[in-house]
Amino acid sequence: MSTFELYAALAAVLFAVGLYGFFVRQELVRKVVGLNIIGAAVFLLLIAIAYRNRGDFADPVPHAMVLTGIVVAVSATALALALARRIEDETGTRRLPEDEESS
């Protein structure tokens, strides 16, 4: 098992953990954490691929992609938390009611 394969496998594991958390947890904050773990999995795969592609240095294109991805993730996270906060202000809870989904 090469270093690339090891971290790529870890990416698969993290992806599953994050996805499970996203599905199972009802609190909005925890759903956001689940998404951030999925994000970490994606970044891990990209960086592992960059490592596999290395010459004098690792492939810089996936590195730039991950930097962008990290910034995008923090943006979406902040927006989600601000929404969660306002939802709490309006309704007193930070969970989404389940029955609304079926309509």
């Binding site: 971290y7 870890l10 960059a50 990290i70």
Partner: peptide, 21 residues
């Protein structure tokens, strides 16, 4: 994860992960 980035020859990402991620 930052440590992992260092292991994978991605010090820029390690910095960004520690600071932002």
């Amino acid at each position: 994860l930052s440590l992992a980035w260092v292991r994978l020859a991605a010090p820029d990402i390690a910095l960004a992960e520690a600071a932002i991620g």
